[in-house]
Computed example of a mutant assay.
Amino acid sequence: MAASSASSTSASAPPVETEYAAPALDKGLDILELLSATNGALSQAQIASGVGRSVSQIFRVLSTLERRGYVHRDHQSGLYILSLRLFDLAHRHDPLRGLLQASAGPMRALANAAEQSCSLSVEEAGLSRVVAQVESPGDFGFRVRVGALFSLDDSATGEVLRAFRSSDPDALEPALRSVREAGHVERGDDLHAGVIDIVFPVLRADGTAVAALTVPYVATRASVLGTDAVLRLARHAASQISGSVFPAPTP
């Protein structure tokens, strides 16, 4: 998967046939990639600058992306953001189905062993979206709805997704570099008192996160395990999912 695609970019690979280039498609993909890597909305001028083109060069492409539902333009501010169209397409795509299938067993085992709920989230258009959820088998637990959206900036899950977004840790701000070095986040939930979020990345072969596994730990007198034990279980589950989706190449 990731390893094989990386090898295809070696120096011996043949050059791309430029006579088959599609400039309009290049512009559209450049715009989508820029918006996906940006927190917040951008103006036409900012998008043009970000993709290295003039406003007139991207105007028709941007209008087409809006008409087809891939970007959304706020009619008051004129700013553009990605819509959830790409997320809808991703749900039909085998890699996401493979991720959900690979995560089902480890997440269920984690929830059963810890008697805590757990969820799996992916980054989408500057937000984190819950794509899978397993409820606690015990009497108490914290549940999030599949499909729910949360800010990347104000959540432990978002911290992990941002910390493992790039394959270059040196490009990260200090706080995210600390998360990257620790390999996970464990802290109190900003919105819900009494909940401790334990979050691990589900990693591709290049060390970037395809998803984040979150245990919203709720401590009660009936809790069977402490946070240290749950942390070990969550680390193992995230590693299992990563290994299933992105298996190590056979020597």
Rank of each mutant, 00 (worst) to 15 (best):
L203I: 13
L203N: 12
L203G: 08
R204C: 13
A205T: 12
A205M: 11
D206Y: 08
G207Y: 14
G207N: 04
G207L: 06
G207W: 09
G207R: 04
T208H: 04
V210C: 11
V210K: 07
V210L: 15
A211M: 03
A211N: 05
A211R: 01
A211D: 08
A212V: 00
L213I: 05
L213P: 12
L213W: 06
T214D: 15
T214E: 05
V215G: 02
V215S: 02
V215R: 00
V215I: 02
P216Y: 05
P216L: 01
P216C: 05
P216V: 07
P216G: 04
A219M: 13
A219Q: 13
A219R: 14
A219S: 05
T220R: 13
T220N: 05
R221G: 11
A222Y: 12
A222S: 14
A222K: 02
S223N: 04
S223Y: 10
S223E: 01
V224Q: 12
L225Y: 05
L225P: 00
G226S: 10
T227G: 09
T227C: 09
T227A: 09
D228E: 12
D228G: 01
A229Q: 07
A229P: 00
V230G: 07
V230A: 03
V230Y: 01
L233N: 06
L233I: 00
A234V: 01
A234D: 05
A234K: 05
R235Q: 14
R235E: 14
H236R: 06
H236Y: 03
H236S: 11
A238S: 14
A238P: 10
A238H: 10
A238N: 11
S239R: 13
Q240P: 00
I241A: 06
I241K: 04
S242D: 10
S242K: 04
S242E: 09
G243A: 15
S244A: 14
